[in-house]
Amino acid sequence: MVKKKKIPMRKDIVTGEMVPKRELIRVVKNKENEVSLDPTGKKPGRGAYVAVSVAVAQKAKKERTFDKAFGVTLTDEFYDELIQYADHQQARQELFGKND
């Protein structure tokens, strides 16, 4: 019998859905209150996840989701970077499939 590998699930902070961690972008706030994208998923600090989706990233910008989640004020540049990164990752998933 083949043991099914447990897939770590995380909540998408924008949509509230539980999604496999690999299909999400991690955003992290460190002790200095700096918020950044975490492509490796290993940066220290408090993490929040958002779907690899331009539409969801744009919604996060519109609703200032990460400002609320982390109790900080973020620049539009941060959200624009998130949208660009989501766009890039979305394109990669379409090219290579979800398990690259």
Rank of each mutant, 00 (worst) to 15 (best):
M1L: 11
M1N: 15
K3N: 13
K4H: 11
K5S: 01
I7F: 05
P8T: 00
R10G: 05
R10L: 06
K11W: 04
D12W: 10
D12I: 14
I13C: 08
I13A: 15
I13N: 05
V14K: 06
V14F: 07
T15S: 15
T15G: 02
G16P: 05
E17W: 09
V19P: 01
V19M: 13
K21E: 12
K21G: 01
R22G: 06
E23G: 14
E23W: 06
L24S: 09
L24R: 12
I25H: 09
R26K: 11
R26E: 11
V27Y: 05
V27C: 02
V28G: 12
V28H: 12
V28T: 15
K29A: 07
K29L: 10
K29V: 12
N30Y: 07
N30H: 02
K31A: 14
K31D: 14
E32L: 13
E32N: 15
E32G: 03
N33W: 03
E34T: 13
S36C: 08
S36M: 13
S36V: 14
S36F: 12
L37H: 00
L37V: 01
L37G: 04
L37K: 05
P39T: 07
P39Y: 10
T40P: 03
T40G: 04
T40E: 11
T40A: 10
K42N: 09
K42D: 08
R46Q: 15
G47C: 00
G47R: 12
A48Y: 04
A48M: 05
Y49V: 03
V50P: 02
A51R: 15
A51L: 15
S53A: 00
S53D: 07
S53Q: 07
V54D: 00
V54T: 14
A55F: 04
A55L: 12
A55D: 13
Q58N: 13
K59F: 00
A60W: 08
A60K: 01
A60P: 00
A60I: 11
K61C: 03
K61Y: 05
K61R: 13
K62W: 06
K62F: 02
K62I: 08
R64C: 03
R64P: 02
R64M: 03
T65L: 00
T65Y: 03
T65E: 08
F66I: 07
F66Q: 09
F66Y: 10
K68A: 04
A69C: 06
A69W: 07
G71F: 11
T73G: 03
T73R: 15
T73L: 02
T73S: 07
L74I: 00
L74F: 01
D76Y: 04
E77I: 03
F78W: 07
F78A: 09
Y79T: 10
D80M: 09
D80L: 09
D80R: 06
E81N: 14
E81T: 11
E81D: 13
L82E: 10
L82A: 06
I83E: 06
I83S: 02
I83L: 05
I83N: 04
Q84C: 05
Q84M: 09
Q84A: 10
Y85N: 08
A86P: 07
D87F: 00
D87Y: 06
D87R: 12
H88F: 12
Q89C: 02
Q89Y: 00
Q89K: 13
Q90G: 04
R92I: 02
R92D: 01
Q93T: 05
E94F: 07
E94T: 14
L95D: 08
L95P: 00
F96Y: 12
G97T: 00
N99T: 13
N99V: 11
D100K: 09
